[in-house]
Nucleic acid binder design. Structure first.
Lengths: 333, 333
DNA sequence: TTGAAAGCGCTAACAG
DNA sequence: CTGTTAGCGCTTTCAA
């Protein structure tokens, strides 16, 4: 017969002090005698006491949970290497503070409405945003909710209001582009991501900053971070810019699609066309040839993101961080 | 100045009824006059009232949250197509019942301990397990916690105690193997998953059930569901069984690794060796050649899993479900 | 340093 | 059908 869950009263009784003292021990407050503290700790482990969060939350009006809001459509999310890393890091770091991670998907009106209600209901102490687009309607609800938010990857246009940790997208793109140039490529095209994401616009900026005024409209096409989109984009690029000898693709997944398109068009890689990707995700070693790509320090990004949020919850001042990338040379360029 | 969040009292006042009646309306109970109900609904939207879950939870001792426990190591989880689908479906379905999804990672001692504490603390109304291994120490903690649990994919050895929804792994493996046989392949090897997972043992059973006593030890090697593992396994298989003309691989990711190994060994696919995968995950179309593979109805599996859990929470009787797979023929076999 | 006591906002049992 | 009421388990004054 499973006994009823012990409450703080049981602990108080077992340790011979009052509820108040137990609470003080539990919350690590100073004004407690060593004897009392020891007695309480013993009683806690004897009784198997675990704090009732609902009761605590009712009293403190803090919930002990953080929402991670996913506003990407499904396909992208799934392929997003940021995602799983961030999730793991966040879960672990938050657990250390006895907080938990609630997941919400907000890629349609209903989802956004739910998130807004959730925040309005005060059900979360903080918000973790991941690859959020510049014009996401959710951002307004988030601001209105007054709940502290941080982002993994900058939220374009809100860089100053939503602290973030991110890779140096511009620098990484520059690395890849310079590498292509150094290898003697002269007619370099690019497939970008959606321009309302940092990976979309900043990686394009990095690309054009290297090539300067040599970049023309026909050399750049826009993709959507999906593999099929990358394939289509590559076809378009080949049409607009048939004699290209290299392409920088803003994500590995799109690069995999581009590889297929090149293959279908009878171009050899890297012989005819060199291909460089971005992310260094799992797929980069699954393609043939394997992708030369730009690695982001995902672990660090994730850790920093969570660190920012925790600092924010503690009402400390926070500063966004941008982390360096690394070019990983494989076979495709 | 953001006003304090309205409580049920504010709604009661605004609608001219008592707290009790408001609560009844909110919880959809029958004994309420139409007039009262209307007044309450109006007051709710006027005041912007959102229920305080902590208070409700304190009273009802239900928490309104479900934990999704991930016990896979990182790499696998990330590549697991089940995962994102299940997450999305779960989030949506649960949101309809005003419940939320809490994520916990339990792939080491610390993680398991946290999950156990969380459950002991009564912080969750239900548990969603995903690709849990047979001997996972967490299972004991889960059973002890008495919290209703369901699994996405059977938990070997607990099929009768933890309801699940899953693809027909055995049948799918049979489909793939029969297809290879039908294409005239005679020397067929297999790379399995870990045998303490249903995808590991059942897919192997399907394979051997087709080939019967023709299967020998040297034709089967065991992988770990990673790409690198698939590559290693293929090398071992080529060593043990050099004249094979086909291989059935228990996951697409491992199949991608196998493709690399075959390529390195100078075997053409499907010319020298036909390759069939399992999952029909994103990577199946990213390889060259693209993978012939077995598709699992992930959406349905996820939906069914969540449906089972909800039924369990409602104290209905539940029955595990096994869903049919489909062979997707592409280029590799 | 500690105990006593007042609620946090809600639901459900009871009385009407 | 509806109002009243008694807590759920906890934190946090306030006194001592």
């Amino acid at each position: 017969m499973p006994r009823k869950r012990p409450t703080i009263n049981d602990v108080a009784q077992a340790s011979g002090v009052s509820r108040g003292t137990v609470s003080r021990v539990l919350n690590g407050q100073a004004n407690v005698s060593l004897a009392a503290e020891l007695a309480v700790r013993r009683a806690v482990s004897e009784t198997g006491y675990v704090v009732n969060r609902a009761a605590r939350s009712l009293k403190t009006s803090r919930t002990g949970s953080i929402v991670m809001v996913l506003s990407e459509p499904q396909e992208r999310l799934f392929e997003d290497p940021n995602f799983s890393v961030l999730m793991r890091v966040a879960t672990n770091q938050l657990a250390e503070r006895d907080m938990s991670l609630v997941l919400m998907i907000a890629d349609d009106v209903g989802g956004r409405e739910r998130v807004a209600r959730y925040l309005r209901g005060g059900h979360a102490d903080g918000i973790l945003l991941i690859s959020t687009h510049a014009d996401d309607p959710l951002l307004e609800a988030i601001e209105r909710s007054q709940v502290p938010a941080v982002a993994c990857g900058a939220v374009l246009g809100r860089e100053s209001v939503i602290p973030y940790a991110a890779a140096d997208d511009r620098g990484g793109a520059r690395q890849a582009t310079e590498y292509l140039v150094d290898r003697g490529r002269r007619r370099i095209g690019m497939i970008t991501g959606p321009l309302d994401t940092p990976g979309g616009s900043l990686r394009m900026e990095g690309f054009t900053s290297v090539l300067g005024r040599k970049v023309t409209k026909r050399m750049v096409v826009h993709g959507d971070y999906t593999q099929a989109g990358g394939e289509r984009a590559m076809h378009r690029l080949l049409e607009a810019f048939p004699n290209l000898d290299a392409v920088f693709v803003a994500s590995d997944l799109m690069a995999a699609g581009a590889l297929q398109a090149l293959h279908a068009a009878g171009r050899s890689v890297p012989g005819d066309v060199a291909v460089a990707g971005f992310d260094d995700s799992a797929i980069a070693t699954a393609t043939n040839p394997m992708l030369t790509t730009v690695r982001q320090p995902l672990d660090t990004i994730a850790e920093e993101t969570v660190r920012l949020l925790i600092a924010l919850l503690d009402e400390q001042d926070v500063q966004s961080v941008v982390l360096p990338t690394e070019l990983i040379v494989r076979e495709s360029a």
